[in-house]
Amino acid sequence: MSPAAVLRSEWIKIRTLRGTAWSLLAVFVLTTGFAVAGNAATGDSEADSPGFDALFSVFLGLNLGQIAAISFGTMAMSSEYQGGAIRASLTAVPRRGLFYAAKLANVAGPALATGLVTTFVSFLGGSAFLGEAALGLGDTEALRACLGGAVYLALMALFAAGLTAVLRSGLAVLSILIPFILVVSLVLGETSGSVADYLPDRAGQQVLYADPPGELAPLAGLGVTALWTAAAVLAGWFSLRRRDA
């Protein structure tokens, strides 16, 4: 089988699903919307308060944007588990490793591309209101945050896709991940220096700060999220490889 052909097939599947484009658009709109609206409202008035971080304040919307990224990853994979789609797919591409890899590449690619546009627009749009306190793209932390934030969104989408391959249900994955991110992480959010720092979302978000509050360094944090994602993707692979379709 030609890997390029299988990649193209999976790309057509992503493109022809209605919800995928909407969820990617939501990543952009939610994240940049918060960056612009939030910072336009407060301006640089918060700049002197102790909790202020000139980078994270423009990436605040990413907390919502990532839910859309998770929905995208979930949707891309769960569409195979509605009806008997997976059987038609595996009858066309019986090499399950190739099928799975092509699917994940088509989750990661669009998520990363959307992520890059989103983080750069958020940064530039949000920083415009911060006056003196704003960082520029020339600052290492700022560039790291823009690139790292995009990688973070792609990792969360992959994390959700892997989990969906394990649970074979988009609904199950979303009803675990969304409350987890909205509630658990926010509740534990204030208590840094604990295990909470190693949760997939908290760890990866270190990269979005000029002065990270957690135990982990920015790139180390992103690495921890990558490990979570690798674990979910691998679990998904074992599930797909072993189970009857």
Binding site: M1, V6, S9, I12, K13, L17, A88, V93
Partner: peptide, 19 residues
């Protein structure tokens, strides 16, 4: 098997492309 939100053509194009 075909996903409800795909068109008939979209479903067949995706299958055809893989082979």
């Amino acid at each position: 098997a075909p996903h409800g939100s795909r068109t008939a053509r979209g479903h067949l194009l995706a299958l055809a492309a893989s082979n």
